[in-house]
Design a protein around this nucleic acid. Structure first.
Length: 668
RNA sequence: GCCACCCUAGCUCAGUCGGUAGAGCAGCGCACUCGUAAUGCGCCGGUCGUCGGUUCGAUUCCGACGGGUGGCUCCA
């Protein structure tokens, strides 16, 4: 399941431009997304591009407002019914919150301690029993009854529910809703009651429990979740469930989840022999198989072409450096948790780099710089290592070793906007190339509380650079949402959140402004007036890391890569052994033409060879037999099943070369 | 890191109410010589994640550790 946020009915409040963090879509390395068409979205106008196949798979995205409201009520009410069932099984349980979410709902409970003194947890048998009990409650057709209460009444009503009391205090003081999120609405304390269960809740709900179809919901999983999402708080037991208006819709949803599993990059990555993980090598440390190696080379070739055209210069820097460099950069004070521990050699501490920037700063500083040579753009597909906590690792999307499509642009303040927007344009070029149509740009800003801890302590410069980014984006007419308190330690950034074809959501490209580190490295240039000035630095990674990008592309294309990216572009299939020699000749000609081809000369029959090429999603299969041999032709079968017989080999080669050269999206 | 669950052949999975395991695919061999998604037969392949405990006996029960999955927290 995905990270879930409370989901509001369509009539509910929406965040404004620059709205609160809890309202904007958040980056997330994993999980199925909640679609930006839901209540958690900031504002329609701010979502630049609309839907793709993934959002259309979920009936929710194409529902009318009315249907969405019904689904909201259905899921919210099912959550309440579940809470009642849990309380009947565990009367001493404490209830926390239970919002509807996209495709379902959850409810958090504190079950107290068991006989062994450890916090009690739900078992799979519990889920079954709770579901059963829920069906009985539903059958009672109990009405949902709303009432408003005073703060004192609420305190009395929930006297033995400490989590509710905490929420009530928030409500009573105003500014926080019943889920603990910030709100500007005037404080109203209300409850909904059905049967024996009364919950602090603003609603809305169904009219009665009988409107929940007994075969339209299912409890899916148990998970731990920190109270109010804070890891310093106690961990509660969360039950996730899904609820639909009918049995069929529930089954369609469950089928969709099954289908999504088939496109999972971890599964396809192994099947298509792109990468593996090995226990002995270590978690989060992918081994790229030859096919993965080709994907990496193609992406690097692409980046190199694009960056050379855009005036970047390539540099190379080491994987290791002395502690002093990261002390100077500020990584050790702010970033040490994500770094591998130091190693000591001859009394000096060395660190493996989590980022490339300090090295690039050193290259910038290698000689005096004039305003005439700015902007200086230093690019490197740098290899970095970050110590991600074990539970955060996720296939290729979240790893410990990575190669970043990194570059640092050093420029004068007057050049900032043009440089920054050129990077945004670069994203868009790539997104178009890959056919990525659905994405959200997110401006991450600092949080006041984190100054000096999470962020460099200079509020004036924070506010200034944030405004620079904001106005650059506005001037460039690029829609974005604001997410407070998610900036890098050295400055604000624009991240791009995208969705893979199976609806998995995560942050891909990034574009960060750095006002803090260049002064620490004493980076300067001489301006036209002959004075020393400090440049701004833009850190950017439009293609993210090889790991995340390829993980994304596998799911995006379901493993069926366009010809230019396909690890194997052509498979030559002889009809019988008699055609092996011709097949080998064809393979030779293709390879000579720079096309990744292989002839399948094994002892399988032709049909089996076609099947095997098809399963490996090879774009083009060339079947050759007597006729082709006689004419110097091939019989082309494309991955999509379309065919073209008796095609002159030279013609096929020319056409394929053109597909590769133009990085065409189609095969025809 | 935290909570829950899982870990049997290269892959996908059966199975053992405690007496050291089986299938399909893949691989290898033989036969078949075939026109657009699986030719047939045979063979090979597992200290049942690791280490400890209980037991006459553990892959099976218990514990720790490792790895994975779904979440929470955190990020490219």
């Amino acid at each position: 399941m995905a990270r879930r946020l409370p989901w509001r009915p369509s009539s509910g409040e929406r965040a404004k431009l620059g709205g609160t963090a809890c309202q904007a879509p958040r980056p997330n390395g994993r999980g199925l997304c909640f679609s930006p068409t839901e209540g958690s979205r900031p504002d329609d106008a701010l979502i630049p591009l609309q839907t793709n196949a993934s959002s259309e798979q979920t009936p929710m995205a194409k529902s009318s407002e009315l249907e969405k409201d019904f689904l909201y009520k259905l899921r919210h009410s099912t959550a309440h019914v579940m809470a009642q069932a849990v309380l009947e099984r565990y009367p001493e349980a404490k209830i926390a919150i239970g919002p509807p979410i996209e495709n379902g709902f959850y409810y958090d409970f504190d079950l107290g301690k068991g006989e062994d003194g450890k916090p009690r947890t739900f078992t799979p048998e519990d889920l079954e029993a709770i579901e059963k009990r829920m069906r009985r409650i539903i059958a009672g057709r109990h009405p949902f009854v709303y009432r408003q209460v005073t703060a004192d009444e609420a305190r009395r009503l929930f006297a033995d529910q400490p989590y509710k009391l905490e929420l009530i205090e928030g409500l009573a003081q105003g500014g926080v809703d019943e889920y603990g999120n910030e709100t500007t609405e005037p404080p109203v304390i209300s409850t909904y009651r059905h049967d024996t269960f009364e919950d602090l809740c603003r609603g809305p709900h169904l009219e009665h429990t009988g409107q929940i179809p007994p075969d339209g919901f299912k409890l899916l999983s148990v998970a731990g979740a920190y109270w109010r999402g804070d890891e310093h708080n106690p961990m509660l037991q969360r039950i996730y469930g899904t609820a639909w208006p009918s049995k069929k819709e529930l089954q369609d949803y469950l089928t969709m989840l099954e289908e999504a599993k088939k496109r999972d990059h971890r599964k396809l990555g192994r099947e298509l022999e792109i990468f593996i993980f090995d226990d002995e090598v270590g978690p989060g440390l992918p081994l790229w198989l030859p096919n993965g190696g080709i994907l990496i080379e193609e992406l690097e070739r692409l980046a190199k072409e694009v960056e050379e055209r855009a005036g970047y210069q390539r540099v190379r820097t080491p994987h290791l450096t002395k502690e002093a460099l990261f002390l100077r950069s500020g990584h050790l004070p702010y970033y040490a948790e994500s770094m591998y521990p130091p190693m000591e050699m001859e009394g000096v501490r060395y660190y493996i780099k989590p980022m490339n920037c300090p090295f690039h700063h050193k290259i910038y500083a290698s000689r005096p710089r004039s305003y005439r040579e700015l902007p200086i753009r230093l690019a490197e597909y740098g290899t970095c290592y970050r110590y991600e906590k074990s539970g955060e690792l996720f296939g290729l999307m979240r790893v410990r070793s990575m190669q970043m499509n990194d570059a640092h642009i050093y420029c004068a303040e007057s050049q900032f906007e043009e440089e920054f927007m050129a990077v945004v344009a670069m994203y868009r070029y790539y997104f178009d190339l890959f056919g990525i149509e659905r994405y959200v740009m997110r401006l991450s800003t600092h949080g006041k509380k984190g100054l000096g801890k999470k962020y460099v302590d200079n509020e004036r410069l924070w506010l200034k650079t944030e405004e620079m980014v904001r106005s650059a984006m506005r001037n460039g007419n690029v829609p974005f949402v604001e997410v407070p308190d998610e900036a890098a330690f050295y400055g604000p950034k624009i991240d791009v959140q995208i969705w893979s074809a199976i609806g998995r959501e995560f942050t891909l490209a990034t574009n960060q402004v750095d006002f803090a580190v260049p002064p620490r490295f004493n980076l300067t240039f001489i301006n036209a007036a002959g004075e020393e000035e400090t440049p701004l630095c833009i850190h950017r990674a439009p293609l993210s890391t090889h790991e995340r990008m390829i993980g994304f592309l596998i799911e995006h294309y379901a493993g069926a890569f366009p010809v230019w990216l396909a690890p194997q572009q052509v498979r030559v299939i002889p009809i019988t052994e008699a055609h092996n020699e011709y097949a080998a000749q064809v393979e030779r000609a293709l390879r000579d033409a720079g096309i990744r081809a292989a002839a399948d000369l094994g002892s399988e029959r032709m049909n089996a060879k076609i099947r095997s090429a098809q399963l490996m999603k090879v774009p083009y299969m060339l079947v050759v037999g007597d006729q082709e041999m006689a004419n110097g032709t091939v019989s082309l079968r494309r991955r999509d099943g379309t065919r073209q017989n008796d095609l002159p080999l030279a013609e096929f080669i020319a056409r394929t070369q053109e597909k590769i050269r133009t990085r065409a999206k189609d095969l025809a």
